[in-house]
Write a protein that binds this DNA or RNA. Sequence first.
DNA 1: CTGAATCCAGATGGATACTG
DNA 2: CAGTATCCATCTGGATTCAG
Lengths: 125, 125
Amino acid sequence: MKCVIAEFQQEQKKRMRAVQDSMDVLNGKWKISIISSICCYKKRRFSDILNDIEGISNRMLSKELKELEINQLVKRTVLDTQPISVQYELTEHGDTLQTIISNLTDWGIVHRKKIVGEKCPVLIG
Amino acid sequence: MKCVIAEFQQEQKKRMRAVQDSMDVLNGKWKISIISSICCYKKRRFSDILNDIEGISNRMLSKELKELEINQLVKRTVLDTQPISVQYELTEHGDTLQTIISNLTDWGIVHRKKIVGEKCPVLIG
DNA sequence: CTGAATCCAGATGGATACTG
DNA sequence: CAGTATCCATCTGGATTCAG
């Protein structure tokens, strides 16, 4: 019996580490917004993303994009324009985040209603 | 046509804000692990969670639990024991996170394989 | 246009000690 | 047991400037 419990706890530790792994990738103030923006338009340039996301600085956008690239979620392509522009798109692996993004979107809407909705529904619109 | 595009962008902004809302709640170094721990055992005491999560300090656990409580994800109950103990459980609203946690878990496993798995599969086990 | 570099304030979080 | 209080190092991220 003790063995079963130990196994259960072991499994749970694995699960927690897995979720944590996901969060490590997704953490960062803007990461999800960036993915969401790229995903929404399929291909998106640096300056476009900069405009999509209210309040982000180019420093942060650059930094977070680099991290996403390292994690193989985003592919970076330099376009031979004048001046040069850079195009970002999700990798296949990045695409697999869509379900999660979608779930987070739905949950976020419900949560906002739950927390402030009753008192201040206008904030939602 | 311009109107359609504008509407589309407006929708996208709403989606991004919704995801961001979710992340605001879920951000914090330990929040997901805490939820995962409570969720796994249904009811869990402070010191038990402290043991479940490797590396967390009581200061952090206390702080993050408080935030989760404010966001109505977790319910706190003081038990009349000697010495007192405190039990935490997910609220109904907190329960709705299970899908997301589950997805994040699955994705985390895949992601770890993707990033380090090929070179160092032993890290996964 | 797409970043990189620098500076700097404020937030985050660990260690430790203390309380009811 | 379940926190709180304090100190302090590190990290985060904004503003600005510079470069290819």
